[in-house]
């Protein structure tokens, strides 16, 4: 019962392609868990299944002892589950402040919440990600990095317990990526989050994550502390291919 998220034998297939195959893992409160895998390994599908965008074909998901396998995304959000998207999906016609206000209004149920109260709270989250000066700019006019940050603010404003971060580094330059990583670490401390971090780049997770799960073709191939994962034969094979040793010698 101590786990915040329990995943048991999740399978999801699209037609003949099995994107996630018989995957099981746990996440404890306060942890930062990384999920890595090569292209097409099923990372984003897994997040979509956990957040409710897709329903799993079989298997069970439990959050805080509640079965959420067939729950709709908004119900999972009310339980304290939030996500960011790999490609930023802001609300293009809303200002930065208003998009965060919506998630402060609609996220986890809070007592005596009016539009103004949500506005005041949203301001705090916008300031946290450093977008306060851009609050009245339409979300579609923000830069790529700012859209990322806006997504983070929007996810934080629902007051989640568990935050899924989907490839926050993709498309950012090293300076911005560094900022983003520090911000997520700060958010974890300040808001007491548990973070499930999907990433393509190993180096980031080596620093940030306490435990890494590696998947390939939808199956778990390794799980453990970052150092172990980095030297794991199967992981290296998944990333570089099976013939890499022989070719390196030849």
């Amino acid at each position: 019962m101590s786990e915040i998220l329990k995943v048991r034998n999740i399978t999801k297939s699209f037609g003949g392609l099995t994107a996630v195959n018989n995957l099981s893992f746990d996440i404890s409160p306060g942890e930062t868990v990384g999920l890595i895998g090569p292209n097409g390994a099923g990372k984003t599908t897994l997040v979509n299944v956990l957040c409710g965008s897709y329903y799993a074909d079989s298997g069970e998901i439990e959050m805080d002892g509640k079965r959420i396998t067939r729950m709709k995304p908004y119900e999972r959000c009310h339980l304290g589950l939030s996500r960011t998207y790999q490609i930023p999906r802001p609300f293009p016609e809303l200002t930065a402040l208003m998009s965060v206000v919506t998630s402060a209004l609609c996220g986890k149920k809070r007592i005596n919440r009016g539009l103004d109260d949500a506005g005041a709270e949203a301001t705090h989250y916008l300031e946290f990600v450093g977008l306060f000066s851009k609050r009245n700019i339409l979300a579609r006019d923000l830069t790529f990095f700012e859209m990322r940050m806006l997504e983070l603010a929007r996810a934080l404003a629902t007051t989640p317990k568990l935050l899924f971060v989907d490839e926050v580094m993709a498309g950012l330059n090293p300076g911005e990526a560094n900022k983003a990583v520090h911000l997520i670490a700060r958010a974890k401390e300040e808001f007491g989050l548990t973070i499930f971090w999907i990433e393509h780049v190993m180096a980031v997770l080596m620093e940030a994550a306490e435990r890494i799960i590696a998947i390939h073709f939808g199956e778990k191939i390794a799980e453990g502390p970052p150092d172990e994962i980095a030297s794991n034969e199967k992981v290296i094979e998944a990333y570089l291919g099976s013939g890499w040793k022989g070719k390196a010698h030849a």
Partner: peptide, 24 residues
């Protein structure tokens, strides 16, 4: 009102609105 704001999010992106807790 807040309902207009919620409608605006549905108008913009239904899936994301669902994800931030709107019963679309």
């Amino acid at each position: 009102s807040r309902y207009g704001l919620i409608m605006a999010t549905i108008n913009d992106d239904e899936e994301v609105a669902h994800g931030i807790g709107v019963n679309i």
